[in-house]
Design a protein around this nucleic acid. Structure first.
Lengths: 342, 342
DNA sequence: TCTTGTATTGTAACCGATTGCATTAACTTG
DNA sequence: CAAGTTAATGCAATCGGTTACAATACAAGA
């Protein structure tokens, strides 16, 4: 077990004061350039590494950012995290990642952990059932920036990075309408979450735009799980007036549902045209390939992180009045094409 | 901005010494039970939170574990991480997660970051091209436990958690043989990685077991990407002696390849039977559904983390001489069934 | 009564980097 | 050459817990 080198060791060896060593290592302007080089070389030679705890204790900054996500094991989330990690890494920030497992209770406990770990900032995509903002207000009062992404909570002091879910929902539905669907079912998640509520709004706007009636029996709020996909297929099979179009707010759920429908003998897209959401890898692998909405996960992670770090550095103030909106895009594949291009 | 409460504040208010407060909060046996209650109540009332940096500075422990993975955005890895996170959370450990992006260079830099962050332990699944152990030996010399999972490096002082890849490779291949395949192609990853090398060994053993010749042209080392899946389909299409079985060491790659083959008019499994690996969600969604090897990712994450924490607590010493082997299992689906069950 | 033991609490020195406030040396300038 | 600048470095307090080593109080035993 080698001994850990401190600035005191360096100071003694070089016949300098710890203060000078500290300043030199932090590139303080008052220190002579030659001295800096001298110290830097010695530090490298002896394998000195700064004790971040001593530093954090003194400076009250941790260079650590907290990230709370509903689940780690979803393609979308892990892509977002990959983007975040890349940026954070570049700026010398560490990431403390927790998952809420879609439970507000766990989310609260995560937030508490983060708080006690004194993260410099917090990035959150909220759980399915989160109602309260309370566990985040601790951060606000302590002036620790909180930034939401994807599943956001509106708060005057918190930034947000999202896509235009309303528009995406509109586009998806409009596409189905354009393909001749007249009875479109929309399967969505918990409507307390902006992502689902907004997509539903877009869905409604598109329906209304064609002067079609809105049938509330065609709007299903589920947990968007694989199991839900199977259940939906069963339900559709038992309906008297079956839908001719299906807009499901999640690709995996949509793919499973499509498969179940095919097993029951429905032709996709002829009997029922289907659109998913997220552009998950599964969407390219099912047959027919699934029309979906491309969701810029990686970009979202990078943007959220850049924004957060910008605010921490004071480089760029977050304009919290308006969320940052990223481009999403409808990707049309065979699962929904009922008309040849004219 | 509220003022932060310290043990000194608590001590002053309760007319005690900081030492007593510190001990009480850590449930030290020498402190009177009533005093503990008193202190705990006051601490809760004033919203005291321990300053972890002061604590870490003194104790030289960080309660933080580093995790380095090739990529965050793969279903398998995020599942493993989910398992790790759950256990770590239960034991009060934080996770510092980095991705190497399959590059040894980045992995080195990750390791350095972890080292400087003074993680108490390190869990690693190595990158595609990692050759050197050097960036981990820093940890070993400082007595910081390093545990590999999935993609491991053999080292006398490092634990490992894996599945029996050789057996899994054997089972997969044997299954194809049992289905009547006589010319099986194996698509694998970088053979420096145990997971791929071992599966190949299993493949070879199965082939040899049937007294079939080993055709090296039927063993392809790729990056197992989606693109690779397409390329493989092209290659097969141009081969004179085409394979009648295909064992691909990754589900997504296999699914894409299957799709490309279907597009070219091959019947799956009649012309070519296919087996993937990992039991990724895509395997259930392609048609025909993909035979694959169930990989206990969540379990692996939990086991690795439990083992690590056990070692740190001294509860349980890692027996580093033998890796921990988890059960994997062949899941037979339609992509490989050529014979009716007799 | 005096000693010894036990239970609790206190004192003070750390851990290692940072930084406001000197201090010293060298250099200008009138 | 004295006074004022400027550049470079040092001193010492500080951040907030932790813990070895007392110290104190009270009870039991000799």
């Amino acid at each position: 077990m080698e001994k850990e080198i401190t600035i005191y060791d360096l100071a003694k060896i070089l016949a300098l004061s710890p203060a000078t060593v500290s300043r030199a290592l932090n590139d303080h302007p008052a220190i002579n350039a030659k001295t800096k080089v001298l110290i830097a070389e010695k530090a490298a030679e002896l394998g000195y590494r700064s004790n971040t705890f001593a530093s954090h204790l003194r400076t009250r900054k941790t260079n650590t950012l907290g990230v709370i996500v509903p689940r780690l094991n979803s393609n979308f989330m892990s892509t977002v995290l990959a983007g975040m990690e890349e940026v954070a890494n570049n700026f010398g920030y560490n990431l403390l990642i927790n998952q809420s497992l879609e439970s507000e209770l766990k989310e609260r406990s995560n937030a508490k952990t983060m708080f006690n770990s004194r993260v410099d900032g917090l990035l959150v995509s909220v759980a399915y059932d989160t109602d309260s903002f309370e566990h985040f207000s601790t951060f606000i009062t302590r002036n620790i920036p909180v930034l939401f992404f994807d599943r956001i909570m509106s708060h005057p002091q918190c930034g947000a990075v999202i896509i235009d879910n309303e528009q995406a929902g509109y586009d998806a539905t409009r596409h189905l309408l354009d393909q001749g669907c007249r009875r479109i079912m929309h399967v969505t998640g918990d409507l307390r979450r902006n992502v689902y509520a907004d997509r539903l709004e877009g869905f409604k706007r598109a329906i209304a735009g064609q002067n079609l009636p809105l049938d509330n029996r065609l709007i299903l709020s589920t947990d968007l799980s694989q199991e839900a996909g199977r259940i939906i297929a069963d339900q559709i099979d038992q309906m008297v007036e079956k839908p001719d179009g299906l807009f499901i707010a999640n690709d995996l759920c949509a793919a499973i549902c499509m498969q179940a429908l095919k097993d029951k003998g429905y032709a996709i897209p002829e009997d029922i045209a289907i659109v998913g959401f997220n552009n998950d890898p599964v969407s390219q692998v099912v047959s027919p390939q699934l029309t979906t909405v491309f969701y810029p996960g990686y970009q979202m992670g990078k943007t959220a992180m850049t924004t957060m770090i910008g605010q921490l550095n004071g480089t760029k103030l977050i304009d919290n009045s308006e969320p940052i909106i990223l481009r999403s895009e409808l990707i049309i594949r065979r699962s929904s094409i009922r008309l040849e291009k004219s």
